[in-house]
Design a protein around this nucleic acid. Structure first.
Lengths: 197, 197
DNA sequence: GCATGTGAAGGAATTCACAGCA
DNA sequence: TGCTGTGAATTCCTTCACATGC
C-alpha cells in the first residue's frame, strides 16, 4: 500500500491526472487486478472506463496510512548512515521530517547536518516534550536495544531500525527493521536460479 | 530463511552449540513451529529432545542460500549512503565483500573508502572481467535504471537497489529494493493502531 | 469499448496437534 | 520428559472471470 502511494505520487508529479490500474501496475511492476482488489476496499474511488483520479487517490491512501498530517521523527546515531539519512530529502514526499538527531560521540554533538543540530544522547528525554512519534535507529548493534528502550520511554510509538538484531518493544510500539547485509545476502540464492519469483 | 541464518550465526558466535527451535524463535521474535516446519524441508537435521547443532545449521542454510562461497559485489554511487556501505563491516559474516566502487563525480574518484578504491563510472565495463555477480545501487533515482542496465551488461546477476523506483531487468537478474523513506512511511499507520501485527 | 468492482476458485503460507525419537 | 518432524485444518493472499457502469 505504501508502494501504491509512491507510484501514485510519482505519476501525479509527472502530470498524470487519471491513472488506470494497468498503468500503475506497469509502473510498479505488479499486476492490475491486485491493485484493483486493494483499491476496492476503499469503496467508491475510480471511474469505470476511465481510471482513478490521481489527486483523490493520493489523499485517500495518505489518509489510510495516517500520512495526512506531517509526522516528526528523531534520529539516533549520526555516523555515516545517520548523516546520509539527515541529508536525504526523500522523506518529505510522505510528510515526514527528521526534527532531531542524537549521538553518543561528543565530537559530533553541536554540529549541524541536513539542517538538524546534533545533540547528545543524554538529552533524549527531551523528545517527550517535542511531539515526536517516530524514531530512526542508526547506532551500532550493541546499543540498539538500549536506545530503543530510551526513546520508547520518551513517547516514540514507531521505530525504523537499521540494526541486525531483533528489537523488543511494548506491543503498542511498531518496529520495522532494515537489515542491509541480510538483504544483500538474499541475492545469491537467485543466481543462475531456477526458482520462481 | 536469511533471518534464520542471522540468528543462528549470532547464537553460534555466543558459544551456543545446540539450538532449540524455541530458543531461535525467542531470539528472532517468531514462533517455534514455523521454524521447525521450515527446517524440516531439509530432511534430517536436528536431534529430538536436544535441538539443532548450530554448526551444522549454519552450513546447511548457507548452502541453501548459496552463501557457501565468497561472493563479490560492486557498489555504484559513493555518496553518503555509498560511503556508509563501504565502511560497514556487516557483510563479511555472510561471505560477501564489496570489491569495487564507482562514482560519476570525478572529485570522488581516486580516493579510498573502507579499503576500496573509487573508480569512475566510465570504467564499469571492467566489472565483466572481475567475476563480480552482485551489484549495489546507491545513486540518485534518475540514474538508477541506467546504471543497472550498464552493470547487467557487465555480467552482474543480482542487484540491491536503494532507489525509490521500480527497476526493470532481464528475468535472470534478481532485484531487491530497499526504499528507506517508504519503510519509514509505513509506521504512522500503526500509531495508536488497532490493527493486528 | 474500456476500465473498475467483486464473487469464486485456486494456491500458498501459517497454525495446530500429536506421533516419534533421544 | 523434551524437542523434533509432519500431516491436517485453517487462514490468508493471489488469481481469475465476468458483470457493472462510464
Amino acid at each position: 500500500m505504501p508502494l501504491y502511494l509512491r507510484g501514485t505520487l510519482e505519476l501525479a508529479s509527472q502530470g498524470v491526472d487519471s491513472i488506470s490500474s494497468q498503468r500503475l501496475a506497469d509502473y510498479l511492476g505488479l499486476n492490475p487486478w491486485l491493485i484493483r482488489k486493494d483499491f476496492s476496499y476503499f469503496g467508491d474511488l475510480g471511474k469505470r472506463g476511465v481510471g482513478y483520479d490521481s489527486q483523490t487517490l493520493v489523499c485517500r491512501i495518505k489518509k489510510v496510512l495516517r500520512l495526512d498530517v506531517t509526522r516528526s521523527a528523531v534520529l539516533v546515531g549520526v555516523g555515516r548512515l545517520g548523516s546520509a539519512l539527515l541529508e536525504y530529502g526523500g522523506f518529505s514526499r510522505y510528510g515526514l521530517q527528521i526534527v532531531a538527531a542524537f549521538d553518543r560521540d561528543r565530537t559530533r554533538v553541536g554540529g549541524t547536518i541536513g539542517g538538524v543540530r546534533v545533540e547528545h544522547v543524554d538529552g533524549l528525554g527531551t523528545v517527550k516534550t517535542r511531539s515526536i512519534d517516530l524514531g530512526i535507529i542508526a547506532v551500532p548493534q550493541e546499543s540498539a536495544q538500549e536506545v530503543v528502550n530510551t526513546i520508547v520511554q520518551a513517547g516514540v510509538r514507531g521505530i525504523l531500525s537499521f540494526s541486525p538484531r531483533h528489537i523488543v518493544t511494548p506491543r503498542r510500539v511498531k518496529v520495522i527493521s532494515i537489515d542491509i547485509a541480510m538483504d544483500l545476502a538474499r541475492l545469491p540464492y537467485y543466481l543462475s536460479g531456477n526458482r520462481k519469483q
